[in-house]
Every structure is written in structure tokens, then in C-alpha cells.
Nucleic acid binder design. Structure first.
Lengths: 205, 205
DNA sequence: TTCCTTACTGACTCGTAGGTCAGTAATCAT
DNA sequence: ATGATTACTGACCTACGAGTCAGTAAGGAA
């Protein structure tokens, strides 16, 4: 009795395909990646891929969602669990989380979003609502709580939580383009945090 | 005697074509732009375009170079001309120059470099040598001169001039992706400059 | 064992876009 | 004028990759 030529595994296929697609997109970018190659990587025929994902674009969107959601959940959990002062939280768990990003698959996603985002407005919309907006709000709350505590002064940073994320985005891009000449991203992220906290506390640094 | 169907204008064609290509790339991105459309925009046949640029990739590289070089020259001129303290220069001409970037065609180029850069390593090399490296060096010199003057303390910023450019790159990306929800980029750039100078001077802010 | 459902295959179509080239006409030299 | 040069045209070629579908075989039910 011969090995069957394939197994039917309806449950696992989508995940396997999005994983393969992620790897392919990471290497070549969206446009240069052939659907057939994704299928090959996933150990599946092109036809099957099209059974689970109507178009290449749908596949791309699914990839983004499937990689972002877990990280969001992770961050939410950290935020919900903490009972610290704002400064301690920013310098501790938040900094730790953020420092992992430039080396993680998330950085690939950021690149893909920059390269392909504007061609998929509904995806951008989703990304804004579920990632960016929520992240910025969380930061704002954190800073405001710090002000109420008397830890921080009210400053322009209250309206510009972007300043906390800036170095992450910058690092991702820089590392991607100039891998070899990239400065120590951890140091950059930490320094920026020092600057911001010193500013909010009105300290000399 | 009828109008001639075309004029021979060998000198002007390359510039006209790169301008057209820039506009097209800005709208659709590199991959989605058809060479024929670029030719149409430039008022020229596809065949002629291929006479001046061997491949689509060569065209892309030419576009990048033709748009970056003038801005480099501009910045060099500003730097050479000044006779100010480091702080005055950073807060004055440098800040002014940098604030123009997020709204200029340069921002399109940054996006293109991120999206397409790694597929053209020699272009990236050129970009590093002629833009990034030179810019960072200029900033380092400026900061070091400030330290020698006694304007600034020596700090970690000496080795991380990147912190000055961070908000520009971030603004460009953010504005591109989330146009509508983008915060005031000028304010972000100015705030970052305030943070850095306060830090280097050891002031309270 | 037999039959039915459906997860899966792979050869096919077809539009598209990068690149070519034989020919045409603008310009210049004589 | 006349011919030589070459900037320029546009129809053509070809590769390639997204998406389709008729058929195949795995796995469960009876």
C-alpha cells in the first residue's frame, strides 16, 4: 500500500500558507513574489492556495493580520498586567517590548506596509484602527496618568506620543536599508526614552 | 508646409523622461508603473526611452540621482556659508531645511528607496556614500564643534547624530501612510530638536 | 466494499508589460 | 537640392505570472 500522495488537512493549510507567504514576501517583496512560489514553499499546489485565498491581494492582507494580531495581544497583556508607575513601566516592560521589534518579523511587516500599504486602503484602515491608533492611545493614557500622579509635568509630549515610537520605525528602516552600517538600535531607543522622560520630569540630564 | 511630427531634442530628453518617471513612480510605485506610461507622460515613444535608458531599472536609478543631487548641493551650500554657533545653526538653517523635506518630492524618494532599495544594492551604496554618510558626518562635525566651543557637553548624541534625522524619516512615512491622521510634522521635528539641544546643554527644559 | 463528498492537483488560458528593431523623418553638411 | 546621419516612432515579439477548472484521490459513511 503506497504512501498517499497528499493528506487532506483543511484546518492547517491557511496558517501554513500565510507562513510561507510571509517568508517569501520578506525575501522578495510583494510584487516580486510569485504565488506559485508561495504554494511550493507551503508544499501545496497553486490551485489549493486559490481555494483558501481568492486573490494574491487577499493573501497579503491575511499575512499582515495573522502576524500582527499575536503581537497586539502580547502587548495588551503586558499593559493590563502592570501595576507600576508610568516611568517604571515605560523604562521596563515597554522598553523591553519595543527593543525586540527591530529584530523580529514585525519589521518585515512594517517594510511591506510602507511598500504596499497605499495600494490596499482597507488594510491600512484596519492597521490604523487595530495597531497604530490603539498603541498611541495606550501611550497617551500612560503619560497622562504620569501627569496626574505628579511624576511628570504636562508637556508637548502629551499630544505627541509618536516621539516614543519614532526610534523604532527609524531603526527598522535603517537596519533594513543599511544593515551593515546601522548603529546600535537598542542604544538609540533607550536614549530617546531618556530624553523624553527627562523632559517630562523637567530634570537635568 | 506641415508642422513636423516631432523635434529632435537630444539634450532635453533625459531630464524630461526622468521627471515624467518621478511623477509616475510617485503615483503608482515602481513595480506598478509601466514604462510605456512614463514615455507617454514625457511625450515620447517607448523606443526612444529605451535609447536613453537601457532598462527600467536604469531609469529608476537615474531618477533617484537626478532628484537627490540638487538637494545635496543645496544643503552643502547652506553648511559652507554659515558662520554661526552650532546651536544657532541647528535651530536656524538646518531646522528650516529639514522641515521642508516631508512635503517635498524627496519624501517620494525615501518611500521608493524603502520599497525598492534592496533590489538595487549599487544604488543603495551610492545613496549611502552621497547622502546618508555625508549628512551624518556633517551633523557630527557640528555637534563636536559645539562641544569644543563649550556650547554643549559631550554626550551620547555625539555618536548618534541619527537622532536629529529620525523625526524626518518618521514624518515622511507616517504622512504617506496615514495622511489624514498625521500629526503636525513641523512640531514633531522642532520638539525633537528642543529635546536634543536641552540634553546637550544639560539644561532643564 | 462501495459510494459520496470534497480537499487537492497541475496543465491550461490569457492579459500584460519589458524590451527590440526595421523603418521614417528631422537636421546638418556639402 | 541631395545625400548622410541619427533622433525618433510604433508595431511587434516574448516571457511570465495571476487566476481557472476539469479531473483525481483521500477519507468518511453506510
Amino acid at each position: 500500500m503506497p504512501e498517499p500522495r497528499f493528506r487532506r488537512r483543511k484546518e492547517d493549510r491557511p496558517q501554513e500558507i500565510t507562513d510561507a507567504a510571509m517568508a517569501a514576501f520578506a525575501e522578495k517583496g510583494y510584487a516580486a513574489t510569485k504565488v506559485e512560489d508561495v504554494a511550493k514553499r507551503a508544499g501545496v499546489s497553486k490551485g489549493l492556495l486559490y481555494l483558501y485565498f481568492k486573490t494574491k491581494e487577499e493573501l497579503f492582507k491575511a499575512v499582515v493580520r495573522s502576524f500582527v494580531v499575536p503581537r497586539i495581544d502580547e502587548l495588551s497583556a503586558i499593559i493590563d498586567a502592570h501595576e507600576m508607575s508610568s516611568e517604571a513601566f515605560l523604562r521596563g516592560p515597554f522598553l523591553d517590548f519595543v527593543k525586540t521589534l527591530p529584530g523580529s518579523p514585525i519589521s518585515i511587516l512594517v517594510r511591506l506596509m510602507i511598500a504596499e500599504g497605499p495600494k490596499h486602503p482597507d488594510l491600512l484602515e484596519w492597521y490604523w484602527d487595530n495597531v497604530v491608533s490603539r498603541g498611541l492611545s495606550a501611550l497617551t493614557v500612560l503619560v497622562e496618568r504620569g501627569v496626574e500622579n505628579g511624576e511628570f509635568r504636562p508637556t508637548v509630549v502629551n499630544e505627541l506620543p509618536h516621539l516614543f515610537v519614532m526610534p523604532v520605525v527609524f531603526s527598522v528602516i535603517f537596519k533594513y536599508l543599511f544593515e551593515k552600517r546601522c548603529p546600535d538600535t537598542d542604544k538609540m531607543i533607550e536614549t530617546q526614552m531618556d530624553l523624553l522622560i527627562a523632559h517630562m520630569k523637567g530634570d537635568k540630564t
